[in-house]
Design a protein around this nucleic acid. Structure first.
Lengths: 245, 245
DNA sequence: CTAACTTCACAGATCATACTTTTGAACCCC
DNA sequence: GGGGTTCAAAAGTATGATCTGTGAAGTTAG
């Protein structure tokens, strides 16, 4: 009955990777700056092994590099592997959230219409009809104003389109899409009641995929992306204002 | 003068990561199979530290997972981070090269036209004119039949379009594109003298970007992608034949 | 015989320490 | 001042010791 009384029994490695990665993304450890391993041991209160294993992981993400006799150097952001889910999460939890959200949205605009088009060719019948079902529920949630449910269904919908494309590279972007959808909802960029057209577009995508019409699927998904970009453009502009040089 | 006479002074960590990653990608360690750390120590002839640090890296790529009392388990390919440059390289060095090449090409088809469109809006003048220069050299190399030079210029061209898009996510895909271009050349999928139209399309992309015409840039790049996909389709078909179930 | 509970040993996780290797930088000599 | 030598700092590698979950075998109760 006593599996844990107080000690959270946290995973030291995972925790350390997370703290380090976040510190780097947040700029608490500036690009180019150098730290020694024993500093990090002390800073995080863990042993050398844990620090080293964490550093190896960060290094494989291109975030740090270590050289003998020198120490561990933080690498510039241009070297980071931005497609690593952890890196995405850290960056969304740092300043530059907005720029990140914009980049990710532009990527979605490129990828999702193409994924929809492929899905129209390759999606198994079961997936296609599940998509139809989801788009129906999505409509319902949109009309009733249940934003929480809407978000969950929206994520599920896009995830299914991506995986139905039959392309592993597209399918892998589901976590990225989930982050964007969650992010924009969290930033209050979604109206309480999504516009009727937006809801209709999801139905259109599902329907086009079901009847195997690549071209329509592509067009409908592109319309969704374009609308989403427009809705978020207010955010870009605000940001551009703030950092107007 | 004597920085190294014989000892390659290889990096044990990098070597071990590479050997392990390749072994997993090649299926030498089947998905779901389990190994103990001390087995790997012996197999690779390195110490626990090295094996553990390597495993942490592989784990962060989703390729393995380790559990107490059990060992290290190879995770299914669906969990791997396919956008990690190392994973891409390992997979291209394994069976499934062709499927990989196809996935990557589909991704290119989605991304590059969009990148070209953005570049038309955002590319600095210098980059645009450099693109024009590259497309000119590309034409020349194509006409003269210098496939090696052509490949290098082609990579440079597409890399510059991606980076000129001003989107960090697109820019990061340059290594991926380089792999595809190199791969298809290596597989003899490129004619000695690229078709005149293909060369012209590159000029069209550069020209559209220079005059800021997003729509034309998108269309021209899409045409390049479509043509490339067609040229490679023979490869897909061969493969489909071989593994016809 | 099944189900729940206990025990126990295994293998990873963490820590500590010793030793090796690279290499930046100080030092020295001409 | 240029070039070579020495030195020590810090990462890399190896290994033993200990801690901690946890699967499985063994045990008991129903």
């Amino acid at each position: 009955m006593s599996q844990s009384h107080l000690a959270p029994a946290v995973d030291l490695h995972a925790t350390t990777v997370d703290r380090l990665g976040l510190a780097v993304c947040r700029g608490e450890m500036a690009s180019g700056s150098i730290v020694r391993i024993d500093e990090l041991e002390e800073r995080f209160g863990v042993s050398r092994s844990v620090v080293r294993e964490a550093l190896r992981v960060l290094a494989s993400m291109g975030m740090v590099a270590s050289r003998r006799r020198v120490g561990v150097q933080v690498r510039p952001a241009t070297e980071w592997n931005l497609y690593d889910p952890q890196v995405i999460r850290w960056r969304l939890a740092s300043h530059g959230r907005v720029a990140q959200l914009r980049s990710l949205s532009e990527l979605r605009t490129a990828v999702e219409p193409q994924a929809a088009a492929l899905a129209a060719t390759r999606a198994p019948l079961a997936s296609a009809s599940e998509l139809m079902g989801l788009s129906g529920k999505l409509w319902e949630a949109g009309r009733s104003g249940d934003t929480d449910l809407f978000l969950r269904l929206d994520i599920q919908f896009h995830r299914l389109v991506l995986s139905s494309s039959g392309n592993e590279m597209f399918g892998m972007l589901d976590s990225l899409v989930a982050e964007v959808l969650t992010g924009r909802t969290h930033y209050g960029l979604m109206p309480q009641h999504p516009h009727e057209e937006a809801l209709q577009m999801h139905v259109d995508v599902a329907s086009a995929i079901q009847r195997g019409d690549s071209s329509d699927a592509h067009a409908a998904m592109l319309a969704i992306m374009t609308r989403a970009m427009t809705e978020m453009s207010t955010l870009w502009n605000e940001e551009a204002h703030k950092s107007a040089s």
